[in-house]
Amino acid sequence: MSGDILHFTKSAHQRTLESLPWFLTQTLDPDERELVERHLRGCPECRAELESQRRFREAYADSDIAVDPEQALAKLRPRLARTHSAPQPWRARWVDRILGAWRSRPAWTTLALTAQLGIILALGWALNRAEQAVPSYHTLASAGMPTRTQGDLIIVFDPGTQQRTVQAILRAAGARVVDGPLASGAYVLAVSPGSLAATLARLRAERGVALVEALRTEGTP
């Protein structure tokens, strides 16, 4: 191990410096984390930098943006209605435009377009053959995507809420975490049978809870 301490290469030192932010947030892969730990043991400069980043991060995490989610969502709702409903008229307008352009075309374009169509069809056939050899991926519209997990409530804590406060809130409400953290920072909670409404109300009254919503209505599985 002493060799690692005495014979740092410049690139190892530089790599450690570049990785420190993610070492601090504990998001490095295990092998990468181990390399950083080994380097830190013998490098006072990197240890000082790590300590500096830790202090920076503690001060940095304070948030000062205040926007009301309900007011913002209220402004978005009319746009949702416009964008998700009735796609047909939009398509119809484009069909009309294309047909109109076709009807008013010059005579020579028929031959050119026919040749172009032939080339496109040939390329499409070739591409189709190539794609059959490539593994496909699925979109959400595809069948066979995973389905949801079980739970009664979904909850989001205020970003500034301490871990011990979160635990105290959950204990007092008689709720337990069955899933999460979801990537959004939300958790899925389970509550005792028959206590959904009461738990929901209790959690909504808690400081430190940014959002809590029921995933089912009382009495449904």
Binding site: M145, Q163, D179, G180
Partner: peptide, 21 residues
């Protein structure tokens, strides 16, 4: 990362991702 450390409170990311999915 630093506050309300979720990893200490709850379980694995695979099922969590399925919930959001």
């Amino acid at each position: 990362g630093r506050k309300a450390s979720p990893a200490a409170v709850a379980g694995g990311p695979e099922t969590a991702e399925e919930g959001e999915l």
